[in-house]
Design a binder for these strands. Structure first.
Lengths: 194, 194, 194, 194
DNA sequence: AATGAATGAGATTTCATTCAT
DNA sequence: GATGAATGAAATCTCATTCAT
């Protein structure tokens, strides 16, 4: 009856609203207690729309995590890319570790969930690998490959500790550590990047 | 012969077998797909015995993770404690990061699951914090508090990347990074930094 | 054609069928042996539909008892309301006590179960109180408050004895007792006793 | 080895302690939620002793209710038996209805549970019938058979309403009602009993 | 005689998914 | 295209009862 007319969704942006709701639910409940119903309620959409838009719960989670990775790595890259000098690059790394923009409490919770889930889901594993790769590329704009690896590990590990610690991060200590790592790696390789 | 005769389990060690089975199931399936049935099957015990020994699935998971944390942090401490000189201590840290004894693929998977779960379970959060604290204490046997923090973040973050990376770790790079961090922190403070 | 189209149950009346089945199961087995499965089987509906329609077994029982109370108190009121004279009102009370329409064997069994359950469930306690109140109101159409109270106690207690007794009720004795109570209460107060 | 020595329980009175604990548990939880474990905990006896002393949960409940019936009907009889005149007998009936010794809140809860359970358990049904019979016999010490029946119904029904009502009983109304019933029945039959 | 560890059967509940409309 | 009613499969948990000691 409308065979030639192109059907248009009557609620554009619903897909994204569902994914954001999914991330909220995951952050609050964990993947193990994330259900269709909870997501639908949180997003304010009918239950049936979840299986209409997504191919089962695994697919939905995978796409939610992909959205998370995209948001996070954009921020990561933007932060690093702004730097014009090596010193500014180091400062950017310190910023990523200490926040407050990156690796908030909610971010960290979601990242933990994503890493955990990635070990049991191929699509999310790929997303995770791509994100890691992209982070390394961002760092490589300023640092040697070795420094990039080391710094990336630090950017990973330090906020994790912060997530479980009550004590706030010591920004000077972080800065000194970053600098030491960079200096060591630049020594080692003749060709500085920035 | 008396009313106070102590009843004895007719399968000693079953509790531990169940916890180990739970860790196996978690490593293979993730917390979200870890069920009583899967654990019981893996442990070779009747389904009903899980609720006999544990106060529900949350308690069971919490105790399994406590067992994991205990095993891991013992290894951590043993490795660090063996060192007699600062150089040996640095080597111990490199060993923790690069393995193969610590942070195996299975270990990392379990740690991810534990961190994720800790954000939604108070008991596991406490276990995680205690573990982090114990790690820092172990490092403090050899390093300044600042160095201990930085190294601990590195020990956390680097194996995580390894877990998702295909490439093996560059042991020399790790050693150089560790050394740089230690050198920087020792320079900076005659007295331990807080 | 629109998003707000009201979905319609594809088996209307199923809720009520489930409640009736629940009352059957309770009457035959008692609340302690009333299970989802037995109710579902009796109602001829899938097990899962019970938790779809009701918030757990307590809610289901509470609603079943509410249905019982409604049916019973409607009959009670209809019987009392029909009376046009005091004599007819007394006859109505005798009818309620001796049956056969009210307080059948099944009714009494269900009432016992409801009273017992009410002591452990707030919703059913409320239902029970409301029913008692409604009965008193019905009687108050014809009798003084004092007579209403006394008669209501009699309407409660006599069928209970009948339920455990083999002997049938002596209708004349009941009539005489009812009349004595009414006469005493009417004498005593020109104005209704409170 | 002790074939000829008569074995003696090392905890006499335990049977009774268990039965009392069972009644406590029933009063607090209802028969549906009365379990071996709860009774054992309440009685402070080992779980295994319940199935040692009793032939399953039904037997235990039956015996607990038998104990209740015995206690209650002894009190009933003692109260009625004390009366020396018809007036005292009426007063005794008023006492049974209004308390405080008979038909306390706990009593009523237990009686409800017993009546409910009796419909599904032959032994308890017998206990209930015997109790009813014994009550009628007690009343027959003073009243005509007809009055006894009517009064017994009243003694049954009125406290039940009290159990669900907030309002306390109107003692004068009860006394007047009892008197009216007795007077009517005595008229009717030439031979007064007391 | 007495007990508490142990378990199988089954109860309640959750939930991803299906499907008629 | 979209939905919410509905359900089967399975998850968690409860518990009467058994039994080795």
């Amino acid at each position: 009856m409308s065979g030639t007319r192109r059907e248009v969704p009557n609620d554009p942006g619903r897909r994204e609203r569902i994914l954001d709701a999914a991330l909220d639910v995951i952050a609050e409940n964990g993947v193990h207690r994330t259900t269709h119903r909870r997501i639908a309620t949180r997003a304010g959409v009918p239950l049936g729309s979840l299986t209409y838009y997504f191919d089962g719960i695994d697919d939905l989670l995978a796409q939610a995590f992909a959205r998370l990775a995209d948001t996070m790595s954009r921020f990561y890259r933007r932060t690093v890319q702004r730097a014009r000098t090596l010193a500014e690059a180091e400062a950017a790394v310190v910023e990523l570790i200490c926040g407050p923009g990156y690796a908030t409490k909610r971010d960290m919770t979601l990242i933990f969930e994503m890493y955990a889930y990635a070990n049991h889901n191929a699509a999310v594993a790929a997303t995770t690998r791509a994100w890691a790769h992209r982070s390394r590329e961002s760092l490589a704009l300023h640092f040697t490959p070795g420094a990039s690896r080391a710094l990336d590990a630090l950017i990973e590990g330090w906020p994790m500790h912060r997530a479980f610690d009550d004590a706030p991060l010591d920004r000077e200590l972080v800065a000194a550590t970053v600098h030491a790592i960079v200096a060591a790696a630049q020594d080692e390789s003749g060709e500085p990047r920035s």
